[in-house]
Simulated assay, not measured.
Amino acid sequence: MMDQESEKHLEPDSHMTDDEAPKHRRKAIYLLPNLFTTGALFAGFFAILRAIQGDFEQAAMAVFVAMILDGLDGRVARLTNTQSDFGVQYDSLSDVISFGLAPAVIIFQWSLNGIDDRWGMLGAFVFVAAAAVRLARFNVQVETVDKKYFVGLASPAAAAVLMGMVWFFEEHGIPFQENIGWVWIITVVTGLLMVSSMPYYSFKSVSPQIRVSFLSVPLLILVFVLALKDFPLTLWLIASAYALSAPLWFIARRVQKLRRKSS
């Protein structure tokens, strides 16, 4: 039988005014977005465990699950009007684990541990440190930068590049992990893109009313067909194209400036 003290916590406070009651209920809703953040954190933790056990395909898939949950927590917080400073900091700490540490451990266990003289460990650490620095910088600049663009490659997108690669080659049984040099370069370059100052489109301004060209329709159909045929390859190609978009745009701008000067 429930004691009297427990019953008091379940009963509505008779001294609570009508104005205080909604505030009390709103505090209780704050658990909802943090549950999604906790789910993303657990997915990252699970990915590390699966990598240690040698199941790299499931480890990569778990990181993508973390990305989905990470995308939902902010939207849920805005829909329920439960944004908080605690939620922002908790989300950043979760991102460091799920999109920094977890991909680095997976890529190290998958390939980079085969490099002598600890170069593999250094490459994986560069990715972890870059993710931590990128998230810290994002929290500091969140109120001052243009919402349409990220400064540097977002950590979930960087993780998608590495995990899409692992998932694709593991599913098809292609021993790409033996090409340790290429894996090391991809890991380090992706990490450096996170701490770069190059702008990446954030897609936060995309709406159902946005106008697109007719060329985008067959492209979307092509992506859809490719996803049905080879989903891991599609994710890897999309993530890689997004990661390369800012450097290619930067190079194109430089080439245009050189042409103008020469002319």
Results as ranks from 00 to 15, higher is better:
Gln4Ile: 13
Gln4Ala: 15
Thr17Gly: 14
Thr17Ala: 05
Asp18Ile: 14
Arg26Ser: 12
Lys27Cys: 09
Ile29Met: 15
Tyr30Asp: 14
Phe36Met: 08
Thr37Ile: 04
Thr38Arg: 03
Ala40Arg: 01
Leu41Trp: 07
Leu41Thr: 10
Ala43Arg: 04
Gly44Val: 02
Phe45Cys: 09
Phe46Arg: 11
Ile48Thr: 00
Ala51Met: 07
Gln53Met: 11
Phe56Arg: 02
Glu57Leu: 13
Gln58Asn: 14
Ala60Gln: 06
Met61Val: 10
Ala62Thr: 03
Phe64Ala: 05
Val65Pro: 01
Ala66Arg: 00
Ala66Asp: 03
Ile68Pro: 03
Asp70Lys: 00
Asp73Gln: 06
Asp73Thr: 02
Asp73Met: 05
Arg75Asn: 11
Val76Ile: 14
Val76Pro: 01
Thr80Lys: 13
Thr82Gln: 13
Ser84Leu: 13
Asp85Arg: 12
Asp85Gln: 13
Gln89Ile: 09
Ser94Asn: 02
Leu101Tyr: 01
Ala102Glu: 04
Pro103Met: 01
Pro103Trp: 04
Ala104Pro: 06
Val105Met: 06
Ile106Phe: 02
Phe108Ala: 03
Gln109Asp: 07
Trp110Ser: 07
Ser111Gly: 09
Ser111Glu: 06
Leu112His: 09
Asn113Met: 13
Met121Leu: 14
Leu122His: 07
Leu122Arg: 00
Gly123Tyr: 11
Ala124Phe: 10
Phe127Val: 09
Ala129Glu: 04
Ala129Met: 13
Ala131Met: 01
Ala131Gln: 01
Ala132Gly: 00
Leu135Thr: 02
Ala136Thr: 05
Ala136Ser: 08
Asn139His: 10
Lys147Val: 12
Tyr149Ser: 01
Phe150Cys: 09
Gly152His: 04
Leu153Ser: 04
Ala154Tyr: 00
Pro156Gly: 04
Ala159His: 03
Ala159Glu: 01
Ala159Ile: 00
Val161Ala: 11
Leu162Tyr: 03
Met163Cys: 14
Gly164Ile: 11
Met165His: 10
Val166Gln: 00
Val166Arg: 03
Glu170Trp: 07
Pro175Ser: 11
Gln177Thr: 12
Asn179Trp: 15
Gly181Asn: 12
Trp182Cys: 08
Trp184Met: 15
Ile186Thr: 11
Thr187Ala: 09
Thr187Asn: 04
Val189Gln: 09
Gly191Pro: 08
Leu192Cys: 14
Met194Arg: 05
Met194Val: 10
Ser197Asp: 10
Pro199Phe: 05
Ser202Thr: 07
Phe203Glu: 08
Val206Trp: 08
Val206Asp: 10
Ser207Glu: 12
Pro208Gln: 13
Phe214Thr: 15
Leu222Gln: 07
Val225Arg: 04
Ala227Asn: 10
Leu228Arg: 11
Phe231Cys: 02
Phe231Asn: 08
Leu233Gln: 09
Ile238Met: 15
Ile238Ser: 11
Ala239Phe: 12
Ala243Thr: 04
Ala246Glu: 05
Trp249Ala: 14
Arg254Phe: 04
Lys257Ser: 12
Arg260Ile: 12
Arg260Gly: 14
Ser263Pro: 00
